[in-house]
């Protein structure tokens, strides 16, 4: 794959992950089980949104067609989104939301650390900033998964159910394609496959402390990174893009 196209693809993948997950997490605002968690969820969503602005702005620059981060967020349709299927999964209960966050944070924390060494300085700078936030996110979501996994019988049961439900969406994080090969060869981004062992080590340790059983299936739903999504993304975009679509060209 041609390098610039691969780079644009990669930046959309990074930005769309944070955009869509930030959207999901922000749906909790005002509805969390306790005020401290409400504030923490809003904080996470805000960090993800801030990262989105950086990734998508750079994506627009790399693409060179004059599209802004807002244009990319609000004026693309489902097939042009490149996020993992995991992040568009509905929130479910609080445990399900935190478990989804944990699976993502563990991955994001690893990839961002690697990206701080990217040969593309612009990527390294965004990763540097985002890595600090991701390190905090993974600490918090790991702690919550442990607390609820090793809490009451009910909280344990709910967390195990969430883990079983979300596990088939894990594998996609580690499936590389031609674009990833191009960027890895250029020293811009790591091969997704190479992140798995560090991810496994962190996740296994947390699941162990949480007394949760790691599902033994390796089946992975895929497609998000290429634009083939679940039914859920269309509704997210209908919600998110409503004003920009209904009143085209207006300034807000």
């Amino acid at each position: 794959m041609e390098k610039n196209a691969a780079l644009f693809q990669f930046l959309c993948r990074m930005g769309d992950n944070t955009l869509v997950l930030g959207h999901r997490v922000s749906e909790w605002c005002g509805h969390a089980p306790v005020i401290e968690e409400d504030i923490a969820l809003a904080n996470t969503a805000l960090d993800l949104l801030g990262q989105t602005q950086l990734w998508l702005e750079l994506a627009g620059t790399v693409e060179g067609k004059g599209r802004s981060a807002d244009d990319l967020a609000f004026l693309r349709d489902v097939w042009d989104f490149r996020n993992l299927l995991l992040v568009e999964r509905p929130n479910g209960d609080f445990g399900h939301t935190l478990l989804r966050q944990f699976l993502f944070d563990a991955w994001q924390n690893i990839i961002l650390a690697r990206l701080t060494e990217s040969r593309d300085q612009r990527i390294a700078e965004i990763a540097e900033k985002a890595a600090k936030e991701a390190a905090y996110h993974v600490e918090r979501s790991s702690g919550t998964v442990i607390g609820l996994g090793d809490g009451t019988d009910e909280s344990h049961r709910r967390m195990q159910a969430a883990l079983d439900r979300l596990w088939p969406y894990v594998g996609e994080m580690f499936c590389g394609d031609a674009a990833d090969q191009t960027l890895a060869a250029a020293g811009i981004a790591p091969r997704p496959e190479d992140l798995r062992s560090a991810w496994d080590a962190h996740v296994n340790a947390v699941l162990d402390a949480a007394t949760l059983a790691r599902p033994d299936s390796d089946f992975a739903h895929k497609g998000g990174r290429d634009g083939t999504h679940t039914e859920h993304l269309g509704y997210i975009l209908a919600d998110m893009q409503f004003l920009q679509r209904a009143y085209p060209g207006a300034a807000w």
Binding site: A32, P33, V34, D93, G147, L148, G151, E154, S155, R158
Partner: peptide
């Protein structure tokens, strides 16, 4: 709906 979370933690 958050009771189980508070209890669990």
């Amino acid at each position: 709906q958050g009771a189980w979370v508070r209890d669990g933690l």
